[in-house]
Design a protein around this nucleic acid. Structure first.
Lengths: 190, 190
DNA sequence: AAGCTGTTTGTGAGTAATCACTTACTCTTT
DNA sequence: AAAGAGTAAGTGATTACTCACAAACAGCTT
């Protein structure tokens, strides 16, 4: 991977996230990366090939974090880390996730099965955690939390929300941390 | 509004939702609507004007439903109807909402202040409902539910989930309906 | 009814600009 | 000297949009 190759990837990610894939011409990528347009096609074959390279690079980093969560044994730690995961990922790579979410709604782009397996692994870990903790409907509880986290990710990308206080609130609900005041807000388990 | 004008709007919505705004040429819209390409520009001025017309048309329908919820007085009915709203909207106009979500992540398109005011009105109604019911942190509770509903909408558009059972599960959590079995899963209020 | 007139609706053939991509070539590294 | 990295100048196809003109329709006067 040469310097210019990495530069192209980074500039392309930046522009795809900002303007959208279809609305970003390769000529603009070349110009801002200060390379010839032909180099993009030499390295990545096509504009779609460039997109795929960007997506695969980002996906590898996710996989590592997901695996680490799945190895966890303490159910409360699992739930905590699943909640923290999207927040960390988006704070680290906001542009990448903005692009991911934008692509999600255009049925043209293939979702690269790796992403599915990540989500499935996370779902399984969460289910076992809720089950171990004695929740009555661990499957629904899992689905509920996963969908909330999808909304949280979306909100982080499109609005500016106070993530920390909201995450704390959620953790209190799931009895993962103590409430700050004497009042209680947690979910009732049984 | 002539027949062909409505035809253009409907075909354009269909294609924008399926392929994305930038990836859909006006020539394709004209072809599938069986009108001359010039007619699109006669009626809507530009491709962006066409998009705006589509968005404004859909937004009017939302406003009516939101207003009706805000007039509600019973807090439990408010929460129930806020939860049901996105499900109904997406079931009625899946393509329109697919387009809305896709546009959300491309910073280019203006979000048409009307959408903001709808969300604000909904947020206010929800806050008052939670407050009336004696929830400890009605603001956090509101934010939490709104973000979950954003995730629910997203999930309805991109996966196929069993919405009904999930919505029921949520309503049990908020004590809006009875649990089917003797087990309890609802949120604890105080 | 019939004719006249102005406005709106609609068409088809343009247009310049831009698109993704290619090719012939040079430079750099080993 | 062989191979990959990099470039500049193209390529035809496609893009959003325009324009000159025709058809349809409305109202108004005979």
């Amino acid at each position: 991977m040469t310097e210019k190759q990495e530069l192209i990837l980074s500039v392309a990610l930046n522009l795809f996230a900002k303007q959208g894939f279809a609305a970003t011409p390769t000529s603009q990528i070349a110009k801002e990366a200060q390379v010839s347009e032909g180099l993009i096609f030499r390295h990545f074959g096509s504009k779609e090939g460039l997109l795929q390279a960007i997506l695969e690079e980002g996906q590898a980093r996710v996989q590592a974090m997901v695996n680490s969560i799945a190895e966890e044994t303490d159910p409360r730690r699992i739930i905590t880390r699943v909640i923290d995961l999207p927040v960390q990922l988006i704070e680290q790579e906001r542009e990448f996730w903005g692009l991911q979410f934008a692509l999600k709604y255009s049925q043209k782009i293939l979702p690269s099965k790796q992403q599915d397996t990540s989500v499935i692994a996370l779902t399984k870990a969460l289910y076992q955690a809720f089950d171990t903790l004695g929740y009555d409907y661990p499957d629904k509880e899992t689905e509920f939390l996963m969908i909330f986290l999808e909304g949280l990710s979306s909100a982080m990308l499109t609005q500016d929300i106070q993530v920390n206080s909201l995450v704390r609130f959620v953790k209190v609900k799931y009895d993962l941390v103590q409430a700050q005041s004497s009042k209680k807000t947690q979910l009732q388990k049984v």
